[in-house]
């Protein structure tokens, strides 16, 4: 058995690079995740989120860098390692003719041999169906499920072996608000009750804020920010937006310090200012400002 100390770091990525032909998709991705931590990998489309997650899942061979997932290199991960990792990809259409419970019971069968006293594997199919809210659809053919139901089944399949580490690639795409809420509950339960380490990708910042202990922002193939949502908001001052009218004309300005800006505005024009509106930078704006900065920097470098 491995020692507990070695197990504490579930994910350890150092200097990860990925190159397709002559194009570098990932330049230098470095981050760690502790056991039981929920990490959100956030970034615009094409930032390299899926590539990163596929390398960690062991589905893609990296160009360079050191990657340890549950203490092993995913490129060499054996079946025992595989049994400890759960994977939910962006789009599945497989097993359409199978029935929901039937498939979960079948796939669970592969994990029975990896059951330990600490982690009972697999998850009982009926309990699992209930956990993802599909009980009334348990006997349905999978191809007849709605998009949100199908996605919940994908998550159920991802956790049927009670993984220590779960990868979720854009898990809530196509969810209605209700389904999204239920899904968030499920992720919280997994993290809290089963100490599952979770790495999820999303481009929904609000979702990242709700689910994750820590947010990584990936843009242009680099991690440009790493911290809790509160830390990120503190560390990176976003731009506030100020709107006003003067002499019947409308004005809009972006500023890092809206209080000083407004003071200046009144100092100069006094009573001529009307309809003043100040919108503080939201996390969303912070995120966008960050991504924009990194893209500009990449543009200069080119």
């Amino acid at each position: 058995m491995k020692t507990a100390a070695r197990e504490e770091t579930a994910l350890d990525v150092d200097g990860l690079r990925m190159r397709y032909g002559t194009v570098d998709v990932l330049h230098d991705v470095t981050f760690q995740a502790r056991q039981g931590e929920v990490l959100a990998l956030l970034g615009p489309n094409g930032a390299g989120k899926t590539t990163t997650i596929e390398i960690l899942e062991g589905f893609r061979t990296r160009s360079a860098g050191r990657v340890q997932v549950l203490g092993a290199d995913p490129a060499q991960g054996d079946e025992r390692w595989r049994a400890r990792v759960g994977v939910v990809l962006q789009s599945w259409r497989d097993h359409g003719k199978w029935r929901v419970r039937e498939l979960l019971a079948h796939l669970g069968g592969y994990y029975a041999a990896y059951s330990t006293a600490a982690v009972r594997r697999p998850w009982d199919p009926d309990e699992l169906v209930a956990a993802v809210g599909l009980t009334e659809h348990a006997g349905k053919k999978i191809k007849t499920l709605s998009g949100g139901q199908r996605r919940r089944l994908d998550v159920a399949i991802g956790i049927v072996g009670r993984p220590e580490l779960l990868f979720l690639d854009e898990p809530t795409t196509g969810f209605d608000p209700e389904a999204r809420h239920e899904f968030h509950d499920l992720v919280h339960r997994l993290a809290a009750d089963h100490a599952t380490t979770i790495l999820l990708t999303t481009h929904d910042l609000d979702e990242a804020g709700k689910l994750a202990d820590r947010v990584l922002i990936l843009a242009g193939g680099r991690i440009i920010a790493d911290g809790s949502v509160a830390e990120l908001a503190r560390r990176i001052a976003g731009e506030d937006e100020v709107r006003w009218t003067r002499g019947g004309e409308r004005f809009t300005a972006s500023t890092a310090d809206s209080t000083a800006f407004v003071r200046g505005l009144f100092g100069r024009y006094g009573e001529a200012i009307g309809e003043l509106e100040v919108r503080r930078a939201s996390l969303e704006d912070t995120y966008r400002a960050l991504v924009r900065q990194s893209e500009d920097a990449a543009g200069v470098g080119r």
Binding site: L89, S91, R93, D94, H95, L107, Y110, G161
Partner: peptide
């Protein structure tokens, strides 16, 4: 099965 992801599912399962 490759097109719809069945094979990938097998790959994601131990001894799948």
């Amino acid at each position: 099965d490759r097109e719809d992801g069945t094979l990938l599912r097998a790959k994601a399962t131990p001894h799948g």
